[in-house]
Write a protein that binds this DNA or RNA. Structure first.
Lengths: 325, 325
DNA sequence: CCGGTTTACTAAATCGATTTATCTATTTGG
DNA sequence: CCAAATAGATAAATCGATTTAGTAAACCGG
């Protein structure tokens, strides 16, 4: 467990620490050829590995950025995270991914922890319940980008999709195909994305002159979802099409239908907001509203990178369109 | 961007830095009630946030552990990573996930980078091509655990599955059902897992007295896989069952069959080594060999945690059984 | 009331780098 | 030939905490 430090290298090479540091930072401006050589040899001989902690402490940069996802079991989050990592890799910045589990307390804890670890910036899928904290970060000029969900009343960089619009189009498409009984299944309406999707649904239904049947809007947590679906399907008017507000809802729905012996596409048409992996393997046609996760991740990373490098511009909100397939 | 340091708090509270430090570390042994109060107030007033870097530099612990996965697009890796994160969360340790992309060079770079950042330990899905590096870490007593793949000739903590045995059983099962033409599709045989799975396949085939047809063993990278499958299916003897050596192979296979208009289960029976998400949604029965990813992750985390806390015991290899469903 | 404990707190060294100001030796130019 | 410029290297301060050794005051028994 022999720690080799810069001082050891300096001693071995017969020069000062400062010179070794210059060498490591490739400031060769005024450096003798022989000195370089000696240092190189000393490093080799001792197997020296620099300590980034010490360097970061002095430089006030850690080359780490933090990603706080609202829910890591959501496939969209992992796609975005991967794109972010890819982007930062070229600049030798590493990403730390933390999972807030849709819990504002956890989110707060992670934000504080990552800032204490001096990460250079944060990309957050906000739970939306820590506005004070978000605000204080922004005020302090700390680099932050928000993804997926809007933050109310705060002027920040955000990268989101046109939830309302694409839901509207998908529902409109269903209506054109003749569906009148379209159900909307969603987790609790606590975040902007879900509310916007519902808004798009309502708009399409109203415009088509269909009366909005409140029983067709199912709002429940994943564990209670099957139960609610049960009562929907045992009621008078049964839906002929269903909108699943995200991939987790879709899985619950899939399990439910399987138990009932129903099939997608045949007994019921389905739209899912979200891509799912392996979707190309499913045999029945399902409509997916796909968010451009990679592009969104890259954009978020880019925005953060600019802030870290103090290339200041005014915060903007980037809205990406989704594709319906 | 006002950085508040411990010195500021000390000044504000009218005590010394040392006392503030004691307070933060909850060493109240000899501390006056009024002093505590004053410090508490000062922290509140200034909005002080401790700097972990400085602390880590002194303590030589960062409360970070690194996970280097061979391939992050492999679903198994993410499941294991999540289990590891969960385990460490209770001890306030964070995990950094890095993707080596099956590239030994990248793997080396990441190992060096993470060690320079002074992470407290490493969990590695080894590419198997950096044995010297692995060895030097182990010799230095640095905490490491290897997952998924064996490391040759090195006495280390490892957590793996019984690749050969479970493949053997799955193939045997197929043979019992009457299949004689069973193909084995795999990515290049560069790592232990793939070789062991092939070994299990060969063993089952031989024991059943079936002549081993080398054309039935397809070894190719994902992009070339379809081409190879093409030639397999245009040859004389067509397989009636296929073993896909992991999830990525399965996707390639699925796409190929879809293009050809064939269906799993009906035209061809399939076993996949690996779980895939949403597998419960697939309508046709496919056999999966499922590795207990969560248990494996937890075990690996536990082994690393023990090493970090110097609870030394001799390195062991833990082999987990897979389930066939 | 004196020496020894205990209590409460602090000064200063330390971790391992970076960085600035400084110093010496050598060139250069007028 | 001497002052100024330049090349090459270094001493020392610094980053923001932890930790050790130490000090001062209060306490305490005989």
């Amino acid at each position: 467990m022999e720690r080799v430090t810069m001082a050891d290298v300096a001693r071995e090479a017969g020069v000062s620490k400062s010179t070794v540091s210059q060498y490591l930072n490739k400031r060769y401006e005024y450096m003798g050829e022989k000195t370089k050589q000696k240092i190189e040899e000393a490093i080799e001989a001792l197997g020296y590995q620099p300590n980034f902690l010490a360097r970061s402490l002095k430089q006030k940069r850690t080359s780490l950025i933090g990603i706080i996802v609202a829910n890591i079991t959501h496939y969209f989050s992992t796609e975005v995270s991967r794109a972010i990592e890819d982007f930062f890799h070229q600049y030798d910045l590493q990403a730390i991914v933390c999972n807030a589990d849709d819990d504002p307390e956890k989110e707060k804890k992670y934000i504080e922890m990552l800032r204490a670890k001096q990460v250079d910036g944060l990309i957050i899928f906000p739970t939306g319940k820590n506005n004070d904290l978000y605000e204080s970060m922004v005020k302090q000029g700390y680099p932050v980008v928000f993804v997926d969900r809007k933050v109310e009343n705060l002027d920040v960089y955000s990268v989101i999709t046109d939830n309302s619009e694409s839901t509207y189009q998908a529902i409109q498409h269903f209506i054109k195909k003749g569906h009148r009984n379209i159900a909307f299944v969603v987790q609790p309406l606590t975040v902007s994305t879900r509310m916007e999707r519902l808004h798009g649904y309502k708009k399409a239904v109203k415009e088509a002159g269909i009366e909005l049947n409140p029983n067709f809007i199912i709002e429940a947590n994943i564990p209670e979802m099957k139960e609610k679906l049960e009562s929907l399907f045992s009621s008078e008017e049964k839906p002929t099409a269903i909108f699943a507000a995200n991939d987790r809802v879709f899985i619950a729905l899939g399990e439910f239908l399987k138990e009932k012996g129903m099939k997608f596409g045949e007994d019921l048409e389905i739209v899912v907001f979200d891509n799912i992996p392996f979707s190309q393997l499913l045999e029945t046609p399902i409509t997916f509203i796909i968010q451009p996760a990679s592009e969104m991740g890259r954009k978020a990373a880019e925005l953060l990178y600019k802030q870290i490098n103090k290339e200041n511009s005014d915060p903007e909100v980037f809205v990406f369109p989704s594709k319906i397939i």
